[in-house]
Simulated assay, not measured.
Amino acid sequence: MRLLLALLLVLVPAALPAQEGLPPAPYAYRQLDDPRLEAQARELMATLRCLTCQSQSIADSDASMAGDMRHQVRSRLAAGERPEEIRAWLIGRYGDYISYQPAIGATTWPLFAVPALLLVGAALVIGRRLRRDRGKGLA
């Protein structure tokens, strides 16, 4: 058991950098030849979140994961897929979090409903306090 644990402690850290050592995907940093398709690719990439950085779009990120995703976007556009199809495929693969423009659905409705409920609650509290303060001022 100790031998297995020691072996894991040696092999796992050695395997992690191996993924980063791979060359980038062909379309990670190379633009498409067709300017119209490249414009569509850039527009789509600006709306997709890098899963490694989480604060940058895949268009702005230098992470290898973002490069792979840029490659997927460009190669799928070059193959004839529409941007909506590519977005749907990426959301299906990585989840709603990947999109900066999530659709209202079973998992995302709280993102839209909770802020609205908080605003309504705050308006009710402020309204009650104003009415109560007016009532005290007249007495």
Rank of each mutant, 00 (worst) to 15 (best):
Q54P: 00
Y94R: 08
D33I: 02
D96V: 11
G67P: 10
R87K: 14
L48N: 03
Q40H: 09
P102G: 09
A78G: 01
A59E: 12
L37N: 01
L44A: 05
Q19Y: 14
I58A: 02
L32H: 04
A39P: 01
L119A: 13
R87E: 14
A63G: 02
Q19I: 13
L90E: 07
V73L: 02
A63E: 09
I104W: 08
Q72K: 03
V120H: 03
C50S: 15
R36N: 08
L37Y: 02
I98P: 05
M69L: 15
I126K: 04
A123L: 15
E43C: 07
G21F: 07
P24R: 06
Q101D: 11
A28R: 04
E20L: 14
L44C: 06
R93D: 10
S61I: 03
G92Q: 06
E81I: 01
Q101H: 12
R30S: 06
Y27A: 02
P26W: 08
Q101S: 10
L48R: 05
L51N: 06
A116K: 12
V114E: 04
P83A: 03
S57T: 15
G105T: 11
I104M: 13
E81G: 01
L32Y: 02
T107S: 14
A28K: 04
F112W: 15
Y100E: 04
A122N: 08
A106F: 12
L44E: 07
G80H: 06
A78I: 00
A113T: 12
Q101P: 00
D96M: 05
Y29A: 11
L118W: 10
D34F: 01
R74D: 00
I86R: 02
G105S: 14
G67V: 05
